[in-house]
Simulated scan of single mutants.
Amino acid sequence: MELKINEVAKLTGITVRTLHYYDEINLLKPSKITEAGYRLYDEEAIATLQQILFFKELDFPLNEIKDIITSPEFDRIKALKKHKELLIKKRGRIDKLIKLVDKTIEGEDNMSFDEFDMTEIESAKKKYAKEVKERWGSSDAYAESEKKAKGYNKEQWQQIDEESKKILKAFADNMDKAPDSKEAQELVSNWQNFITERFYKCSNEILQGLGAMYSADERFKKNIDRNGKGTAEFMSKAIEFYCKK
């Protein structure tokens, strides 16, 4: 079975634009591209997409998902079993909420809020995320970042946060310039050096993936755009020009 990209989008609810983006960052490549330029996805690609969506459900960022599913030690069946455990917990919570709604409709005076409690599910998600990172999150960048992060104290984290905000604010302040302008390109260089010094060696390849993520991943986009609407898109384009040089 091979599906065209628009068929995959219809099947999964993922937009065509998102699938293009997953291709760009090497998270999910089409199984083949026809002479006419159509992207085709086979069963293995669809299974990989399913894994990506499962991990997104657990709030994993795309760069970590990529590290996990491309790890030589990654076991898809074990991952699915863990996903199943979490889904069963979610189903149990939804069943309780439905019962509460039915009782309320029937006129029963029930002021219980226990059914809304997400503590057990959130605890399970955190536990699973920890297990996943320990088992499969073994990329050099991830390991280096974890090592550095553990060594920072409160004051150092505050300084890192200030450095990050300063660079992001500078991107926002320079949005009136072209993404390939001298000012924008210097800011990209500053951002790359900041990541390398504070977290892990940020190669152009990694930087390019991050840049694409800033404009495509809503969580990153929302956070960066706090400095000014359009900052994430401008930053992404500036990084794209920088990495093509």
Rank of each mutant, 00 (worst) to 15 (best):
M1V: 12
G13D: 08
T15D: 08
D23K: 00
L27E: 03
P30V: 03
S31Q: 06
S31N: 10
E35A: 12
A36Q: 12
R39E: 05
Y41H: 10
Y41T: 10
E43L: 13
E43V: 14
Q51Y: 09
L53Y: 03
F55K: 03
L58G: 05
D59N: 14
E64K: 11
I65V: 11
S71P: 03
S71K: 00
I77V: 15
K78F: 01
A79Y: 04
A79N: 13
K82Q: 10
K84N: 08
E85L: 07
I88D: 12
G92T: 02
L97I: 10
K99L: 07
K99M: 09
L100R: 14
V101E: 11
D102Q: 10
I105G: 08
I105H: 01
I105Q: 07
E108Q: 14
N110S: 13
E115K: 05
T119V: 04
T119S: 09
A124P: 02
K125E: 14
K126C: 06
G137R: 05
S138E: 11
S138P: 00
Y142P: 00
A143P: 00
E144Y: 02
E144I: 03
K148M: 01
K148G: 08
A149G: 06
A149E: 11
K150Q: 12
W157N: 15
Q159N: 07
S164W: 10
K165D: 09
K169V: 06
M175G: 05
K177D: 11
D180E: 11
E183M: 09
A184F: 03
E186M: 14
E186L: 12
L187G: 12
V188I: 12
S189Q: 13
N190V: 00
W191R: 05
I195T: 01
T196H: 04
S203F: 06
S203I: 13
I206T: 04
A216C: 15
D225Y: 14
G228N: 04
G228T: 03
A238K: 01
Y242Q: 07
